[in-house]
Every structure is written in C-alpha cells, then in structure tokens.
Simulated assay, not measured.
Amino acid sequence: MSALFQIACASNSDAILAANLAASPCLANGVPLHVERNAPSAAIAYNRALDATQSEIVVFAHHDVFLPKGWDALLHARLAELTRHCPDWALAGAFGIGADYRQFGPVWTSSLGQIIGRVPSQPEPVISFDEMLIVLRRSSGLRFDDSQPGWHMYGTDIVCRARSAGKGAFAIGLPCIHNDRFHGALGPDFTESYRWMQAKWPQYLPIQTPVTKISRSGLHLMRERWNMRKSLALRETDAVDTAAPAPDLARRCGWADLTASVG
C-alpha cells in the first residue's frame, strides 16, 4: 500500500520537521519521505522533489503538517473514489476553495486555533488549494512553475495550470493537523506573489484563495490587510502554541485514528 505514494517536503527546520511531518505514523509504516532544503522558492523545491522521486502519487506537505494514524489508508480510499468520479484527475488536496467560494477541509490550523473547512460528501472541484498539503498525480504531466517567486500561492497556480490543461483539481477530505505559527500580517513577499498571479492568470480572475481574493484591481489585498490589522488581538488570542504535540491535537480533533473513516 505505502509504496504507491511518497511524501515530499521543503524544510528549513529539522526541529519542526521532526515534531510534525516526520512524526506521522505512516512514515513508520514505510511511506518514503523526501526532503528538499535550501531551495530559493517552493516551486523549485517541489520540482526538484518530482525529479528525485518516482511514485505515481506525490504528496507535497509542509514540514509543520502531521498526518494522523490511518491517514495513508484513508488517502488510498479517497483517491480510489476520486478516480471513479474523475478518471483524469490531476490534483487533490486537504483544504481547497470551490468556485462558489465554499471552503472544503477539514483540517486543524494552530494559527487560527480551530478546524476549518466543511467535509466534502464527494470529491469537490476547487479553484485553489492551501499549500499545506497537495497531492499530485505524476502521469498528469503537471509541474510547478519555476518562475513563480517565493513561498505563497503556488497551490493556486498549480490548480490554474491543471485548469488550463483541462484536468481536475479536487478537495477529497483528508483530515490532518497544520501546526502552523501565528501570522500577524501579510508581508511584501505575499504582495509579490499576488502581483505575479494577477499578471499570469488574467483569464481566471477573480480567484478566491484561502487567504484573499486575487482580483484585477487588487483592492481585495488591501482589504485583507486592513481586516488583519483590525482582528490582530482576537486572532492572537485564538491561536494555539505550536509547541502543542501534534498527536495530542489530532486526538482532540477526533482524528487519533482515521482507520474507521476508510470505506
């Protein structure tokens, strides 16, 4: 079972990796983990990982993601369902945004201190992914865009690439823990990624992402920054310390063992 996919990660912290992704039970069950370090961008890191691996299914996950017990079996079941639903699928993800702006998960996020995203009753097509976890089908021929700067919005770009190739991207219900640190504001690197996406995909605008809407005017980015400033104190209160053990967070979410979800 485990040989059918492997996990790829870009990491700059052995401590974060060891406490989260590398602690996922599926790795002890034989799922391979490939780690890329010192890449100049997420796209370059992930394309390097594609070149260095061979599995048909590659799971790109952040180093602060924890996959609960039984997650590997659940992935196989969900992908089998997705293949029946859409034989030519290219991408799947743990958290995505539908064309009608519905959010599909469910995932735990420590930065918000809650489970986010509704549970899809079937594979749901999406127009963007949170980058925390993206599943890519190698035979789709998709790759990330090496020219994309930085570490933001590559989950939206890869979905746009799938759309332009006539292939599907879906949220499929893969509960997991994103033990991410609190973000007080959006930095200039986020603005750079936003402008890059505006220029690259005008035919698909507006695109709702997990953070903000990419629009022609860019006013939504300004609005999001304003909203984040206004909500800073409340969001700081809601956030959970990333020192909380990831298995404990999974247990509190009811995801200590996902084996029962298979079927």
Rank of each mutant, 00 (worst) to 15 (best):
K167R: 15
R143T: 14
V159T: 04
S140N: 04
A199H: 14
Q122H: 13
L142A: 10
D145K: 09
M153E: 08
L142S: 08
I115A: 02
S121P: 03
K167H: 13
H183G: 10
L205Q: 09
T156R: 04
V119C: 02
A165R: 14
G113A: 07
F144Q: 01
G184Y: 04
H178S: 03
E192T: 09
T156D: 10
F182D: 06
N179D: 02
N179V: 03
D157K: 10
G187V: 11
P175T: 02
M132I: 09
R143E: 06
F170S: 00
Y204K: 10
S147N: 12
I158V: 15
H152F: 15
P123W: 04
V135D: 00
F170P: 00
P120E: 02
R163W: 09
L112Q: 11
I115K: 10
D145V: 08
R181L: 06
E131W: 05
D157F: 06
D130W: 14
C176M: 15
R195Q: 13
G155F: 01
V126G: 01
R138G: 07
H152W: 15
E124C: 05
R195V: 03
E192D: 12
S147V: 11
K200H: 06
Q203K: 10
T191E: 12
E131N: 12
K200R: 15
G187E: 15
F144I: 06
P149Y: 07
Y204T: 10
L186M: 11
T191L: 13
R137I: 09
G141A: 13
L112A: 10
P175L: 02
I172Y: 01
P175H: 06
G173H: 01
R138P: 05
Y204P: 00
A171W: 00
F190I: 04
R195Y: 09
L112C: 06
V135N: 01
Q148T: 07
I172R: 00
S111R: 03
F170L: 05
R161Q: 13
K167E: 07
H152R: 13
W151M: 12
